[in-house]
Computed example of a mutant assay.
Amino acid sequence: MSDWREWTYRVFVGRDVLAAYLGVLAVVWIALVADHRLLQIPGHILLVGFDVIQTALTPPFARPLFDVYRAGYLYGLAVVVAAIYRASR
């Protein structure tokens, strides 16, 4: 593989991104399932952040794609979290 392909794979698909995506999904899942309000706060902050972006950028006819957009948003967060993790190592 060429250098740019390795870099792209490492940044967008690597092991760190997968771990961060699973972590973000776990936080959102806990927010949706937990009964204790303190456990719900981090996940709700993530979901509200998506709602702000989705309301501003999504046209009304694209509302059926809400879950696809939310998955993309959470994936983007995972890429950012993985980049911060790699930079801190």
Rank of each mutant, 00 (worst) to 15 (best):
L46G: 08
V81P: 07
G76E: 04
D35G: 10
T58R: 09
G49E: 02
D16I: 01
I30S: 02
V81L: 15
A56E: 04
T55C: 02
L18Q: 08
F50D: 05
A82C: 00
Q54P: 04
L22M: 14
R89G: 15
T8H: 10
R15D: 10
A56D: 00
G14Y: 08
D67P: 04
I41H: 03
I45D: 02
T58K: 07
L18N: 12
G23A: 15
F50N: 03
Q40R: 13
H36E: 13
I41G: 01
D3E: 11
G43A: 02
R89N: 11
Y75D: 02
L57M: 12
P60R: 12
G43L: 06
A34V: 08
Y85Q: 11
V80T: 13
V68L: 14
A82I: 01
A62G: 09
A71R: 10
F66N: 05
F66L: 09
R15A: 12
V68I: 12
S88M: 12
R5A: 13
W7D: 14
S88Y: 09
D67W: 15
L38N: 06
V24I: 14
Y85L: 14
L74A: 02
R86T: 09
V17G: 05
Q40W: 01
R86E: 10
H36A: 13
P60W: 13
I84G: 02
I53C: 08
G49N: 09
R70P: 00
A87G: 05
V13F: 12
A82W: 02
Y9A: 13
R15L: 05
P64K: 14
R89K: 08
